[in-house]
Nucleic acid binder design. Structure first.
Lengths: 199, 199, 199, 199
DNA sequence: TATGAATGAGAGTTCATTCAT
DNA sequence: AATGAATGAACTCTCATTCAT
């Protein structure tokens, strides 16, 4: 009995936390960190202002928790897609395709990410890079290093090149019109990158 | 006599405006629009709070005035550099080189630009794009269209491709370490882009 | 239980609102709208500055809420007193007596009213007239029209004459010395008005 | 020669002062003391901000100088009109007629007066009453005392009754519609007052 | 005499955060 | 666990006043 109750309680806690994070994502995407409003978030989540502070110690911590979540989802989604292919060239194409798909599907969350990376708060920026470290490593090892080994890519240094690919991804995928459609086509971007990487 | 006085006064006005814009550039770069502090700006410029409002009607107007100034300098600098070459391929290289140089030389101003473009305030974003329209046109006409005409580039559509080049430029040039050094090399970026554009 | 809590909370809300309005009445009476200080009001009410904005969206809205309250009290008090008599002549006397009594008892609130009516903000003025419409109607119908019907008053038009009586009331009752005593005697005023209305 | 120059200079000074006072009258009438804007006044007068402070030591002093001027004009106009008649009854009618005429002709200045009298600044109020002392005396002596002596008025005390007449005048004459037309007719008001004063 | 750039105290308002319930 | 009334520091913006020219 007690254990069941315990479980129920945990579920309620998780669900509240989830709703708060969802609402926070929308608000942070809409307004950025400084202009995001804690009250707006709590109301959108269906709770009152105080509840947020039962789950997150501060507005800043709320955003960081959201970054963690976004990074996990983002990395998992891209890895999953990329690993469907084994050829490094196809993996690269998949990488851009999956990246654009992720941004399309999760535009508010992606916007938060881009805002933070190109924003002026260095602490946020550093936090994001740490959270995305697995993705950098994945691109470097599973796409670039393999392509170089197999002789499909020029002899590039995996680490800085991974950064280049990521930067191009973020820069191109983030440009959207009012309906959320990308200005650029991922195939166009990966074609361009592939030309650059091939011998 | 009267004319001299008039001139003096105008010079003082211009100089004050200049110092305010310089200080504003630093502060907006450091903190972004919302967290930038009017008081900090005026103190840094050597004036008191109220003086800003003798020159700009609001914090927002101050930033927009700065955007105008940055865009003019930015566009002029890049055009000047690019036009030193006549070959479209070399022009493209110059474009990235000049772009990276501009960011290096005017990092705070470039940061403001990137923040606005990737930020959440749609009005700021629209304003920036209008201010940079001449640059888009320049890239489309003086680099891409010429390269296509002369058979050096694939048959790309100048307008969206100009946007792609700009996006890649902004995305790559803006990534800097703490000392302001670019993570990426402009030659690397233009090589990649060139590979993508060539037949 | 829950209902009691609910009630308690509502009582606290009402009480805070009440204290804010009381303090606001004193401050607006002392200084007029423009020179009234939000901080002074909240401190006098025993709260901090921000609390006012949990109850009223702006300084202006605070004053308008106060006007609503004053008008309701004012009208109710005068109607109650006037309706103690049925003879229109006696009603007129009661009207001035009650009016002067109201001003004596609620001098700060009355001052706010007079300030607004004779002030330069047309929006405030219009708001006050709308709030006092019931009083104009009451004087026109329950005093003047009846007196004319019963042949005690000259054949005057009720509406503009009601305005005249109100104007004389406001003009005379508002003149007070430092101790809040009226310069004029309401009996004197109503005698004068009665002479003017009788055949 | 020197004396002529001196005269010219004095004329310029007087004219500037005059234009400043005219502009100040409009602005104080429009907005009341607190919301009146020194810059608006100086621009309307065709001068710059600083000039006001060459003529008046402060915004407050500017208003007081204006009050002096208004009172002098006001009193002179009413005395002149009233003294055209010798019969106290006709003088009383003239008093209200002239009063309403003055307000009609000098609405901004009259508004300033009414605002101050019914406003919340006690110092302004006291200043106005001192400036209008000659008018109170004039009404008491030249209208009321004479009417009582000649047996046309009831045996009223001149001083408080003068105050009553003035208060009624100010209260009634100040109510104007958007085109500046009085809500009430001065004949109506003086008829009412006369009924009250006659035996 | 007239100017207007500079000042800076002070205003209303916002909002992340606290905490008693 | 959830609430929301209260807080008060911080913010942008206003404007009467000063003073060097």
């Amino acid at each position: 009995m007690a254990r069941i109750k315990q479980t129920d309680r945990q579920q309620i806690l998780d669900q509240t936390r989830r709703r708060l994070l969802e609402a926070a994502a929308d608000e942070f995407a809409r307004a950025g960190f400084s202009d995001a409003n804690i009250n707006t978030i709590s109301i959108a989540a269906g709770f009152s202002k105080g509840t947020i502070y039962n789950y997150f110690p501060s507005k800043r911590a709320l955003l960081l928790a959201l970054v963690d979540e976004i990074a996990l989802q983002h990395i998992a989604f891209i890895q999953e897609q990329v690993l469907l292919e084994s050829d490094p060239l196809l993996r690269l194409e998949r990488f851009y395709q999956a990246g654009f798909d992720f941004v399309t599907a999760s535009l508010p969350r992606a916007r938060i990410l881009f805002n933070l990376i190109n924003g002026s708060d260095e602490k946020f920026k550093a936090y994001v890079f740490i959270a995305y470290q697995p993705m950098f490593n994945f691109v470097a090892n599973e796409i670039l290093a393999r392509g170089v080994e197999q002789g499909q890519f020029r002899l590039v240094e995996p680490a800085p090149t991974a950064m280049l690919l990521m930067t191009i991804y973020l820069g191109t995928a983030s440009q959207r019109n009012d309906e959320g459609q990308a200005w650029l086509d991922p195939a166009q971007v990966s074609a361009l990158v592939l030309h650059g990487l091939q011998k």
